[in-house]
């Protein structure tokens, strides 16, 4: 698909919107359907799109191996760390009320933080799986 003009230009045009949509799905998950998992999958989808249209090397320039492999455990650590923050402040594990003076606001913030962790792990894992399969074939 190297010389398919429409595909290449079209991909370039919609890529930013897809990525913004992924984060919209995540950050707006409080108000509308969506959340970290779906956002992470869509963010990984942008990398897939680049890899399919422009080849694996172009995708690796956007999301290099070290970054992807770093993201996989980072998300779990963010999620688990958000729980430990509750422990350190003298509350239960994963009690988000410690993030803010107001309990409800703290919960809202905590949900965003753990969903961000989910997003990072899901996006990293999906991309890493894709790379692993594609690299194996070459």
């Amino acid at each position: 698909m190297k010389f398919d003009l429409i595909l290449r230009i079209g991909t370039k045009l919609i890529l930013p919107f897809v990525l913004v949509f992924a984060f919209y799905i995540h950050f707006h998950g409080d108000y509308r359907p969506g959340g970290g998992f779906q956002g992470g999958v869509i963010a990984a989808g942008t990398v897939f799109l680049v890899a399919i249209t422009f080849g694996l090397a172009a995708a690796k320039r956007i999301a290099p191996n070290w970054l992807v492999e770093f993201m996989v455990p980072l998300g779990v650590l963010i999620f688990a760390g958000a729980g430990v923050a509750g422990l350190l402040m003298g509350k239960n594990y994963l009690d988000y009320s410690v993030f803010s003076a107001n309990s409800a606001t703290g919960h809202e913030l905590g949900i965003l933080i753990v969903e961000l962790g989910v997003l990072i792990t899901v996006a990293g894992t999906m991309t890493a799986l894709f790379y692993a399969f594609v690299e194996r074939g070459r």
């Binding site: 998950g29 409080d30 959340g35 988000y96 309990s103 919960h107 809202e108 905590g110 949900i111 989910v118």
Partner: peptide, 14 residues
């Protein structure tokens, strides 16, 4: 309790 109108998100994450 969570300030999050989407109950699905509240249940899942909190």
């Amino acid at each position: 309790e969570t300030n999050v109108p989407n109950i699905v998100s509240a249940v899942l994450a909190d």
